[in-house]
Design a protein around this nucleic acid. Structure first.
Lengths: 90, 90, 90, 90
DNA sequence: CATGAAAAAGAAGCGC
DNA sequence: GCGCTTCTTTTTCATG
């Protein structure tokens, strides 16, 4: 038994330092995310400067994302069927 | 002048290629963003696995973000004050 | 059972009347919201007419909102801590 | 001339108090706006609880708003035309 | 699954 | 009047 009562199974100081580490790692990642969002904005700004309609390009990006997802799902479905009839697709 | 409306001030073929380029650049950036989001999730998963409460860590991250935002806004306010005084608005 | 899909579990006529009621109630509320937005604009206009810098006042309002939010989040964090300790997470 | 140099045409203390008053009035209005937004959410929650699709009702509200606006604009246009031919619509 | 928070899209207001 | 920024609203995503 330690002198000081522990809260749970992590001792206070060690916990504090670990929490700090987790928080900082998350903050770093979120900062990177913001940077990328900024980059995306800049791409759109560039597109706009080149005479394109940003709204339309955004729609294109979204449409392609949906199509990619659809293809992914179709592939998954196909694989499920193939597995059901014990067919190797590859 | 052709009957068909042009997209921006670009001719059709050049436009197509430029649009494609913009779309692909955005898609690349968005993919990176998703990767980072995934990384963040993994950090939280690790924290949880180490015995920490994810909710608490998220709250800490958020509170620190608010503090940062507050500092940012305070600075902006000071600058606005300075500008207002210059303009004799007080 | 009719061919036509029902909206929710309500029969057609009753539904129509209920939907109308919901829509109208929302419209009334949104109208009130617009009125208040208008009032806010007028307050800013008055401030401007009295020789104040609107931008500064807006920044003050925002900063105070952030401060309120911060206090709110601090409280929420404390509650999360308390819950986490109960759950032996530290 | 007062003893203390004034910044602009508003003396410091009077300014401070006036600004405070403006800020508080705005805050009060914004608080009321939030209340109404909350009421709207509750109406939608009630609609949902009654078995309706919230998204659809929102679409209806928006459509009606557009139609109202359209009618308003048509009326304005009509009045402009009437004025142009010096015709009294009323 | 349903709730609540975060991101993205869209609308509005502002200054130039 | 137009473009730019700010604010609202919608949609999405994660957690319980």
């Amino acid at each position: 038994m330690t002198k000081k009562a522990e809260i749970g199974h992590n001792s206070d100081t060690a916990s504090a330092s670990k929490i700090k580490s987790f928080v900082e790692r998350v903050e770093k990642m979120e900062s990177e995310k913001r940077d990328i969002s900024q980059d995306i904005k800049e791409i759109y700004a560039e597109a706009k400067g080149t005479g394109f309609d940003v709204k339309t390009i955004k729609k294109l990006v979204k449409l392609r994302a949906i199509e990619t997802e659809k293809r992914r799902e179709e592939q998954a479905l196909l694989e499920t069927y193939a597995a059901a009839i014990q067919m190797d697709l590859f």
